[in-house]
């Protein structure tokens, strides 16, 4: 690491923060200025210290890490933030990203990953774990996938297209008429159509 990097840690679990601290002490050009035990304490510390990077946990009392990140982005836009959390939920990682965090690390990371992330973030890059994506196999090759129809709804739409009545669809798919009616209502909502005539027109236009 070329330039000296000043860091503030924030974690309510002091033993963990001390552990990270002692790892970082062995690294040249990295200095830990202070350790906060909650988000509010961290924000208070920032008015006295000028760190380059803040490494913070999500789950903290008083002010959680995500809210703190948002605040730091508004109040101290030059300070970079890395979330170090045990949560690997994609929506939390997304939220951290949208709140302006520069990096996200899981607490199960090893020393090299930690240092790598600090290095990247200090260079102005962002560093987030790769996230699993929802897989929609049934909607892959359908012309109507943009409408977010499920497999069952597509099936019903095809039967409607073949002039099946609700009762006939129910018998054909071994469903109750109420279930078919509900699916039909949901299809209409997803396609943003108001009347059966509009549905017929839609099916014609899509060439189904």
């Amino acid at each position: 690491m070329q330039l000296p990097v000043n860091i503030i840690l924030a974690d309510d679990h002091t033993l963990f923060a001390d552990g990270i601290h002692s790892i970082l002490q062995t690294v040249p050009n990295v200095a830990v200025l202070a350790i906060a035990t909650n988000g509010q304490e961290l924000i208070d510390l920032l008015s006295r210290h000028q760190p380059d990077i803040v490494i913070l946990d999500i789950n903290m009392p008083v002010l959680n890490g995500l809210e703190a990140t948002k605040l730091i982005r508004q109040e101290f836009p030059h300070i970079r933030t890395i979330i170090l959390s045990s949560y690997n939920d994609p929506h939390l990682i997304n939220l951290a990203h949208s709140y302006g965090a520069d990096g996200y690390l899981l607490k199960t990371c090893n020393k090299d990953e930690l240092l790598q992330t600090i290095r990247q973030v200090s260079k102005g890059q962002s560093c987030f774990p790769s996230m699993p994506r929802l897989y929609h196999p049934e909607s892959e090759n359908l012309p109507i996938r943009e409408f977010n129809l499920t497999r069952r709804e597509t099936e019903i739409l095809q039967l409607i297209n073949q002039q099946f009545t609700n009762q006939q669809i129910a018998t054909h798919l071994y469903l109750s008429i109420y279930t078919v009616e509900t699916h039909r209502k949901n299809i209409m909502q997803k396609l943003q159509l108001k009347s059966p005539a509009a549905l017929t027109r839609f099916l014609l236009e899509k060439g189904l």
Partner: peptide
Amino acid sequence: IGGNLAAIRVNLQN
């Protein structure tokens, strides 16, 4: 428990 485990981990690594 989770917090302690994370602390054990990081100190063990160090």
